[in-house]
Amino acid sequence: MINIALPKGRLGEKVYAMFEAAGYECPSIKEESRKLIFENPEKGVRYFWVKPSDVSIYVERGAADIGVAGKDILLEYEPQLYELLDLNIGKCKMAVAAKKDFYDSGDSTLKVATKFCNIARQYYASLGREIDIIKLNGSIELAPVLGLSDVIVDIVETGKTLKENDLEVRADIVPISARLVANQSAFRFQSQKIEEIVQELKAQVQKV
């Protein structure tokens, strides 16, 4: 039995649809219920929904054999996992944004508001720029508007929220999409089944 951690929400539903199309369906997952775990013994799969940012924890600690996590989470927390496939869905980018009238003279410490401290730190370290990180947990766009920060580092999907708050993208850091990840130990002891799932999902990715 392969334990699969799926991210709750819209992305998770798309991901499950890919697993279903790949031949790993589990009809009970679509029933209205408060159940947390869904199993299809015939197909040898057991799914569970978890908070998207927790998928990598479940997989790294072996509670799930495989799972689907956003590249943003993988870059931020750097879990020890195998990243077996880019599912090519949930596409967006990690970017730097600022108020349209902000001018970065480069002669002072840049105040950066973000939920993704590790990604921001690594990005600015690669540029050799000194920054002051302000860790926020939500409404990141508000920080430059109220003068809390000079810029933000955040996920940009359509750019609509930025536009509505008079912000604009100043630099792209990295493209983001959903990735199939596997526990390093489970990959060895269930390698045949995991490789089979990867191949079937790969065929689905090519269809997208």
Partner: peptide, 9 residues
């Protein structure tokens, strides 16, 4: 080296 049931090397 990996042991079955232990999540890392």
């Amino acid at each position: 080296g990996f042991l079955k049931g232990i999540c890392e090397g």
